[in-house]
Design a protein around this nucleic acid. Structure first.
Lengths: 162, 162
DNA sequence: TCATAAAAGATTGTGCGCAATATTATTTTG
DNA sequence: CAAAATAATATTGCGCACAATCTTTTATGA
């Protein structure tokens, strides 16, 4: 696995090396990418998770769909402990409104404000800029994305005991 | 890029789709992997970042090296705002000791306690178990790890204006 | 029908990450 | 040698993530 490990190392020395952990590569790369987004999103006054919420809402707006908090949770894999305060902050910033559904008072639906909807224009350049900064062939990025989704799906299947 | 997008979509519709963001795949996969670790590490009373710290300390112990907080920061890409409280918690749990260097009182060195050192035995099975849960060919995992490090290194080079 | 269960969010508490600033010790410089 | 700069860590404050619990509303069913 590692190329520069002394021959004297036992098997679990290799397995426990930080550099050999897939998880650390994921962890570090994710934070590095998020840091790039932070920079790009500063102009839009969005944090990275807030940007993800906006992506879902912009997408739904185009197809005329109404988004519930539970929809967001499924899509982003986040629970209400994360989403409730996040969405309240976003509502406070005037990006969206939270409305109790009249038919089912348990449900909260999310609606872009005019400025939230308009912010989409400013965000258009973000994905391309990030691909540029990643400095990898587009083909390799697509392949990386596929592999990550594959990993994600498998883990979600395996862990689906709840 | 995406296979199921309507032909009517404009270019930036595709770019702004959640599913097409590399970042989201990274974000979601990272959290899914971390969730698996959380489960495995519960037995050891370690959080995931604490586990990463232990990996570094176990590794250094084997080669007789002394680890400073700044070393950990470089290795894990974390700053003192994260590390100071993290290490204090770990010290509180009896995993390690923090010692001011006698030669240079600015420096804090980290030293495994007996139980911190012994915990390594219990952690030996963790990496293998995780690879197992990932459900991908070992070769593919190694390749994924390489790609992620490549991405990480490139971002660190580009962002190195500080 | 009325209790019971289930669904959808909200709340509480803990532990990261990280920006910004502060503190203390060492080094550099005029 | 004293003042300024730098280095190493600490502190503060905010925003996620997530487990655990709670509240309110709707659905079920004996």
């Amino acid at each position: 696995m590692s190329s520069d490990a002394p021959a004297s190392m036992e098997a679990d020395d290799l397995w426990l090396r930080l550099d050999n952990q897939l998880c650390f590569a994921l962890y570090a790369a994710n934070r590095a990418v998020t840091a790039e987004y932070r920079e790009l999103l500063a102009d839009l006054d969005l944090t990275y998770p807030q940007y993800l919420v906006m992506l879902v809402l912009w997408e739904a707006e185009r197809s005329g769909q109404v988004v519930k908090i539970s929809d967001l949770g499924q899509r982003l894999r986040l629970d209400t402990g994360t989403l409730t305060p996040l969405l309240k902050r976003m509502a406070g910033h005037g990006l969206l409104e939270r409305r109790r559904d009249q038919q089912d008072e348990r449900i909260v639906t999310l609606h872009l404000t005019a400025s939230g909807s308009a912010l989409r224009e400013s965000a258009r350049s973000v994905p391309r800029e990030l691909v540029c900064r990643a400095g990898m062939e587009r083909e390799q990025l697509v392949s990386l994305r596929q592999t990550l989704y594959q990993l994600l799906e498998h883990l979600e299947k395996v862990t689906d005991h709840g």
